[in-house]
Design a protein around this nucleic acid. Structure first.
Lengths: 115, 115
DNA sequence: ATCATATTTCGACAATCTTAGAATTAAGCC
DNA sequence: GGCTTAATTCTAAGATTGTCGAAATATGAT
């Protein structure tokens, strides 16, 4: 019974750690086929077990997917999930330029504007 | 000495809790002048002390600001921070819509399109 | 089958988070 | 001052998270 809020919260929580955010950045910028865990480890210079734990957190949240290729595991970003999360955040928490809610004064869309 | 990654991680972490995400949604959709803590409490139906703690977390992350008005405290969203965070997430973790995957459909960027 | 490599899982510990009742501060009013 | 309302801070407990060495698993090669 996890609604959209719970799901978004879980994904945001997964991103809410500097190491995991760094991992995701590397994975996102890496090849579409995925980045080997070992490469992430050597780049980020953290123990393999710690990295694995964080990767599992990201995978559990659905932000990354994993595929085996020989002895290595390649992690790749799930862009559709990331996009959906960003869109949700945008729509729901930045008002996305959407409906002004009940209230005397409601300036529309304070967020999207870059002025 | 917190870099951009650490700052984004802190903000994402603050959002990574269903109650806090719900709080922010209400605040965002509420009046620009801010929503009284008491109103949030009655709507979300959580103890005042718990709410206050979560509000402090959001405020510490810079996502909301607070101003006193008589005996009530009004919390309002800091849209510039929210916008910066969303944009960071979009740019850094969703590749900013670049590198369209060799997939079937590539939706138009869901967030603040810069095209 | 043995070995080497890549990575995860186990186990344990400290640190942080979440929750909420009780006590406290802050502001306005009589 | 005393009283009421609004909200925070204090305090404490239980739960979760973060870390990483050690052990285990998986794959491929000799």
């Amino acid at each position: 019974m996890t609604g959209p809020v719970e799901q978004a919260a879980e994904q945001l929580k997964a991103l809410g750690h500097p190491v995991r955010l760094s991992i995701l950045r590397r994975v996102v910028q890496g090849p579409l086929a995925g980045t080997p865990a070992g490469e992430l480890q050597s780049r980020l210079e953290i123990p393999a077990s710690t990295l694995s734990h964080h990767l599992a957190t990201l995978a559990d949240a659905g932000l990354v997917q994993v595929a085996r290729e020989g002895t290595t595991l390649r992690y790749r970003a799930d862009f559709s999930v990331l996009r959906a999360l960003t869109e949700y955040l945008w729509q729901d928490c930045c008002s996305g330029g959407a409906e002004p809610q009940s209230g005397p004064e409601s300036k529309p869309s304070p967020c999207c504007r870059r002025d």
